[in-house]
Nucleic acid binder design. Structure first.
Lengths: 259, 259
DNA sequence: CCAAAAGTGTTAAGTGTACACCCATGC
DNA sequence: GCATGGGTGTACACTTAACACTTTTGG
């Protein structure tokens, strides 16, 4: 799938908006670690965020949706614009362009297309929160591999991608203060301790078990099921599900305003 | 100043990034009303947000800074990116382009430049908070007038500019929950009731005088002066100044986190 | 001296924090 | 039965919301 899309991409380079790219920080949660999905380029030691370009006729949000779909197979996921990165010196475009041009150096790329690729790119940063176990990471045509990395053990990244990741994490932490989180990061049913680990991992702190439970319940976005997670050691915890209606409402209205 | 800049702009259209514009929602506060600065175009009944393009070599943030400077004369102002608007059908660019091309129809605009102007534009929305009394609104070359409008009495706006304004206001209200505000919206000294009116106006609600004062003081970003605002009727209120060091620190660290 | 605005104080209700205690489970 | 993790309850501190009282000022 990505292959055919990519050849298509090369041929239709003029069908994309110039100078604009999107990069997506795809967060996943697994074994108490917050992870992001990265691509390893063929030319370099460095890794890169999955990114793409915007088709001339499409809605802006479609571009990150495509990226997410192609790299994870997932759709219908929470995806949020968080910052535009536009330093003239950012070399993301150059790196990406170098990959493309080297790969295609035998082709007869017009000067126009060369210009397109080598010009300055402003990139719109999106973040996505996905369920780790449902993802089958797919490399794109310019990459060797696509895989998950612990947020605390990132490899060297191209261009300003480290900055983009940091900013994404900062934004998620801020959003945690007034938005619910977890619907797409966790399986459809989960235990309270599991939800707590997610919060702790994102925040990089520890939280009080009992107070966490109370606060989460006060948000009124969880339904406790009559089942428990059996099989594990020790006391079996209850299973919970997000109440999707209330969850979406909380996303819109915010959890709590100061004023 | 704007005139010379504008002719320069036309000649150097190729010196700007294609397909990207910035629009700035400039908020001011005057007589208990929240206002924004709008431009009236020569061709249409509709008004528009001040906007501009990004020069090829400049930092992204320079573009809205230029816009702000040219329309208000102000610099060093709080300016924040809040959303990217990228629907393919948004006609801002077309409207703007129409103005430009009509105005220049006798000139020999190359097909390339025509394409540049008539293509699809993605716009990055910024908001600025400025001190009303220090602004001398300046129209640009494509506009008849530049003036303030009460946020509740906006004229018809071109394209999706109404949406952009709404989103800006929503963002400011949200930011009010974790960021200090007022440094650039108010004169350098002000009274507590004046600051309260600002908050009330932005939020569209009324607040308790005494609790407001306590909360503001608890943020530890205000210095009370030994002077009062005399001349008015009734009891003279104290004057306050923002402690700029603490203010900037609060901007960075946030006022209060839930977690 | 009265009305209106501003400053200060008080108190009850609500919320958050830090625990103590009990329950379930595997070894 | 004991270590460990999970569920529930509670006392206390702290914050917030609501309101009373006092002070200042112009008319």
């Amino acid at each position: 799938m990505p292959e055919s899309h990519n050849s298509e991409f090369i041929k239709n380079i003029a069908g994309y908006l110039p100078a604009i790219s999107v990069d997506v920080v795809i967060f996943g949660f697994h074994e108490n670690e917050l992870k992001i999905l990265l691509l390893e380029s063929k030319d370099q030691e460095n890794w890169a965020l999955p990114g793409g370009f915007v088709r001339k006729g499409e809605f802006l949000e479609e571009a990150p949706k495509r990226v997410l779909k192609e790299r994870t197979g997932l759709s219908g996921i929470f995806l949020e614009q968080f910052h535009v990165f536009g330093d003239p010196e950012r070399t993301r475009a150059n790196n990406r362009a170098l990959q493309l041009t080297r790969q295609l150096e035998n082709d007869d790329l017009s000067a126009e297309i060369q210009d397109w690729l080598l010009g300055r790119f402003i990139t719109i940063g999106y973040y996505a929160l996905v369920e780790f176990t449902q993802v089958d990471p797919q490399a794109d045509f310019s990459s060797i591999r696509c895989s998950w990395f612990d947020i605390n053990e990132l490899p060297p990244l191209i261009s300003d991608h480290k900055l983009i990741v940091e900013q994404a994490l900062k934004t998620v932490r801020l959003h945690l203060n007034f938005q619910p989180i977890g619907l797409n990061l966790l399986p459809s049913t989960f235990t309270m301790p599991e939800l707590q680990r997610l919060y702790e991992t994102i925040l990089g702190t520890t939280l009080d078990r009992r107070n966490f439970q109370r606060r989460m319940m006060s948000y009124d976005i969880l339904n406790r099921l009559n089942e428990k997670r059996t099989g594990g050691a020790f006391k079996a915890p209850f299973l919970y599900k997000f109440n999707e209606t209330r969850y979406q409402q909380a996303l819109l209205n915010g959890l709590k305003d100061v004023w």
